[in-house]
Design a protein around this nucleic acid. Structure first.
Lengths: 371, 371
DNA sequence: TTGTAAGCGTTATCAG
DNA sequence: CTGATAACGCTTACAA
């Protein structure tokens, strides 16, 4: 016996319905429902009971329209089906939920065009703020400027847009790249290749820069031919063999992400070479795959959940700040600053990554000390 | 030079702003913006230009409030961080987007309480319809009845609620279970264990039923002690060893999902037994892990993207049907039917799964013929 | 303690 | 061709 035995009108109940049913005014109902002190105990109970009976649910749209805040946060990610991003979303969801915000998730499928359409939709829905990780292909950022023009706070996470100065949450990719490479060096590798992602992405730049810094710091040569563009599982399967034939001295590979590392490992194993004894391999991301492949993969924790949490946290802070100062000063300094590309009072939260050492690099452990 | 050079008022532009700027009425603006035939070419251009200049974006909330449809679809999944669900969401997103709907994703984190709160939020946001895959722990379904009481169409996918008769999109778990088990039998396994999920989930029941049917059909005994509750990677790591010591005759395992299968494989390998020669292992789901583990895993395609697409497709059909008949007949038959638990005109779309054979079961291939 | 009315942004209806 | 007005559901001065 499900509740609500046939009272259902054709439309969801409104406060007006409650008022009519009780012969009182809508304002009384409104007040009673939100426990306004002026309302008599009796009326309040009566109203609440009727609300229950009519299965009244507040209309969030009407509320938003009136209050000019939707309590909704928009999120744009390249692909939901990507462990890192789904982890971030999960973090966002959990924290936003705690703070009473809803989340509207869009995926760009790595297309700038689609990203722009998502942006439009979020603006139309009057989201209170936006979290975004930009698509690989995005070159023109006018759709992102729209948010700023509309006065909607934006926080970039992970894949930030270099030309737009707003709050950012990123992990220290450079440090991650450094840690991995340093670790490979300490494991005795002297000819370390880097399988890199397109260098228009800041994260790709960072990881590569960390790789180079480690080599320099340990007096190893940075050789451009040891850095190839290869950032997916499939491409690693294809390219690793040829690369190793051209560079047989290679004894370590740092791949820009885990799946590429795993593709490389599989290709290496197919060639009959041993991991880690012949070649040590490390990735970046620490997705579930890293534990499941053989050997298990040394990698860098990407802390998606934490990034998600931190991003919303920052965003919500901005939203609420904005709200408080809105009437006070009518201040548009920040907005203007962002628009003019001036680096103003925007935060960049840098998450420190950890190196996770697993089987794929476990060799010569003593070398670490004696180097 | 980002567009919109400082015209920004403190609030997003509305048609009223356009009207005021142009000295015409809001209704004219409204009509001009939507290319109403009555409007003169001249006015229309003028309005559109001003809209552009003021960076006018329609307010979806106001639109929804007025039209009584939000063009938004709510989705509740147990966990976004789960390859199957993120795949489904991706399918939902892509199709919904094509049809002009937005998507609001919530995760229940497998908690009934959280599921109920999500349901509340979606109702408050007046979503036009809901897609849901129920949490493992959900036992009380009153929060799902709320949707029906509110006249909001619901489609269950994958994890359906047995007591609520609405549209469903599922894969044929029974068939999947059958195919896997039959395959194991054909590979020469005679003592096949099943690592099952809690039997309150229909999908768990189905997979197990398929397992049993296959055994029966091939004249093998169905032994309850060969069926254990074990449905996560971690538990498989823990329990597989003890299980195999108790049942050393085991020569095949069908796990209810891939990660459990992989956990079992790792435990088996740690014991020094060979896969597939000593024990063949198969999973269910065909996530990315299945390709990355060693040996690669025989499994059943779960077709998440397709399930997502089919679910929204079905849901949108219901939404639009409802809309068309709404004024016509004021019909509540369906709603009533669902409420009374009567199986009415609801569809169940069954997706046919495919068996994917990989290394973890590749042995005695010839047996298949001679059995 | 309760009611009235204006307004959030939009569109549809009715009048010019 | 264009304009005024009501309505969608809700809150909140202001009045009573």
């Amino acid at each position: 016996m499900p509740p609500g035995e046939g009272i259902m009108k054709s439309h969801p109940a409104t406060i007006k319905d409650i008022a009519k049913a009780l012969g009182i005014s809508v304002s009384t109902v409104s007040r009673a429902l939100k426990d306004h002190p002026d309302i008599s105990e009796k009326t309040r109970l009566m109203v609440k009971e009727m609300a229950e009976k009519l299965q009244y649910k507040p209309n969030a749209l009407a509320l938003s329209l009136r209050s000019n805040r939707s309590n909704t946060i928009g999120v744009i990610v390249p692909e939901i089906v990507h462990h890192f991003f789904s982890t971030v979303i999960s973090g966002i969801e959990d924290y936003a939920y705690e703070r009473g915000y809803n989340v509207m998730v869009c995926q760009s499928n790595e297309l700038q065009e689609r990203e722009a359409i998502n942006a439009q939709a979020l603006i139309s829905h009057r989201v209170d703020g936006v979290l975004i990780s930009v698509a690989k292909t995005t070159q023109d950022f006018s759709h992102l400027h729209m948010f700023l023009n509309q006065g909607i706070p934006v926080v970039f996470f992970d894949r930030v847009c270099p030309e737009i100065y707003v709050d950012r949450v990123i992990i220290d990719d450079e440090l991650g790249g450094f840690l991995v490479t340093e670790h490979l060096i300490k494991c005795g590798c002297r000819h370390i290749a880097h399988f890199a992602a397109p260098q228009n992405l800041l994260i790709a730049q960072g990881r590569r820069a960390g790789y180079e810094r480690a080599l320099l710091q340990y007096n190893l040569p940075v050789r451009q031919e040891m850095i190839i563009l290869c950032d997916t599982y499939e491409r690693a399967l294809e390219k690793t063999g040829a690369f190793l034939e051209e560079h047989p001295e290679t004894d370590g590979i740092f791949a820009v992400n885990d799946s590429t590392a795993i593709g490389a490992m599989q290709a290496i194993q197919k060639m009959g070479r041993k991991i880690p004894s012949d070649i040590a391999v490390a990735g970046f991301g620490d997705g579930p795959n890293a534990l499941i492949c053989t050997p298990t993969l040394t990698t860098v924790e990407q802390k998606g959940y934490e990034i998600g949490m931190e991003s919303v946290e920052l965003l919500i802070r901005k939203i609420e700040e904005k709200e408080n100062t809105a009437l006070a000063t009518e201040s548009t300094e920040e907005k203007d600053a962002a628009k003019k590309g001036v680096r103003a009072k925007f935060e960049t939260k840098v998450i420190i990554p950890n190196l996770i050492v697993r089987e794929s690099t476990m060799r010569f452990p003593a070398v670490a000390q004696t180097f």
